[in-house]
């Protein structure tokens, strides 16, 4: 936070004094160096993969060539991608339910000390207990089908949106703007839409971003446990040594997860910048 403020202060002073051409070219050089390093790491990783694959053999690690030529087409010809699409839909249903619980409950926790006291033990209880331990028990109630995955997603994903919404709302409620609306007797509706929601939005978005990551883990864990849908496919691909297919499917899952995470990150940064809030560094809020 301090660092961000400090760097911002510095950048405004340099803007005022004017940037010299030398500084500009130095900045450009740095950017070129940065991107060549970034692309360089990609190249190094891919090269390392190929060397590893060549030395351990296709049975242990398929070459990138066979992932591209055998694995990726199979995603579509064998319907693996469509199956993952089904998994994704169940995950989104579970996550929507999680958010439908977490956002109002979080708002309650943030706005009222009483509700914070009542709900905090539940929030942290669900967070601290090793949730995968519930797999054998929950299967008794929900069976080995679609519902089971949805319930696991709910349990996995509810914490972050809940706790972040609570934090966001509590920051607004204890902030100066909210105090002002009280003394100016602004209508509750206006307060909700003009102060509360925009003020807590960056936190809510961070919660949703982190929760979404947990939702991916939850659904895959549930489906691996029951050998259902995508989880079943991943397991079968390893048992039958279809490694190019496994890496293609894992790559698709990973890309989807990373893309949704980054998308929310971009959206979040935009909202934060618009509201003049500190845009956190490379990692955002991990806690």
């Amino acid at each position: 936070m301090n660092r961000v403020a400090a760097s911002r202060a510095r950048s405004t002073t340099s803007a005022r004094t004017g940037v010299t051409p030398a500084a500009r070219s130095r900045a450009r050089n740095r950017k070129v160096l940065l991107w060549s390093l970034r692309l360089g790491t990609v190249a190094v990783v891919l090269a390392a993969w190929e060397i590893m694959a060549a030395s351990v053999g296709e049975d242990l690690l398929p070459s990138l060539g066979s992932v591209v030529s055998d694995g990726i087409p199979a995603l579509f010809t064998e319907g693996y991608a469509a199956e993952f699409g089904q998994t994704l839909i169940r995950m989104l249903i579970g996550f929507a339910i999680a958010c439908a619980i977490a956002l109002p409950a979080g708002a309650l926790m943030g706005a009222s000390k009483l509700w914070a006291d009542i709900l905090t033990p539940y929030a942290y209880g669900i967070y601290m207990a090793p949730r995968p331990a519930l797999l054998p028990l929950l299967i008794l109630t929900f069976g080995a089908g679609a519902t089971f995955g949805i319930v696991m997603v709910l349990l996995f994903a509810v914490f972050f949106p809940l706790i972040n919404t609570a934090k966001g709302v509590s920051e607004v409620v204890n902030g100066p703007l909210y105090e002002m609306t009280k003394s100016l007797q602004v209508s509750r509706r206006r307060v909700l839409f003009a102060v509360l929601i925009p003020g807590s939005l960056p936190y809510v978005l961070a919660g949703i971003r982190l929760g979404l990551g947990m939702a991916f883990n939850g659904i895959l864990l549930a489906e691996l446990w029951t050998a259902y849908s995508t989880g079943g496919l991943l397991e079968a691909m390893i048992s039958y040594h279809q490694l190019p297919e496994y890496f293609a499917l894992a790559g698709l899952i990973g890309l989807t997860a990373v893309a949704s995470y980054s998308l929310f990150g971009v959206f979040e940064r935009r909202v934060r910048r618009k509201r003049g809030m500190a845009v956190t560094g490379a990692f955002g809020e991990a806690s």
């Binding site: 895959l220 864990l221 048992s239 990973g254 990373v258 991990a286």
Partner: peptide, 20 residues
């Protein structure tokens, strides 16, 4: 700036899919 994006990507990747 070089390693950060990799860490972010790895963090967002659901590790459970690597269990098999």
């Amino acid at each position: 700036e070089v390693v950060g994006p990799w860490v972010n990507a790895a963090y967002a990747t659901p590790m459970t899919m690597f269990i098999p």
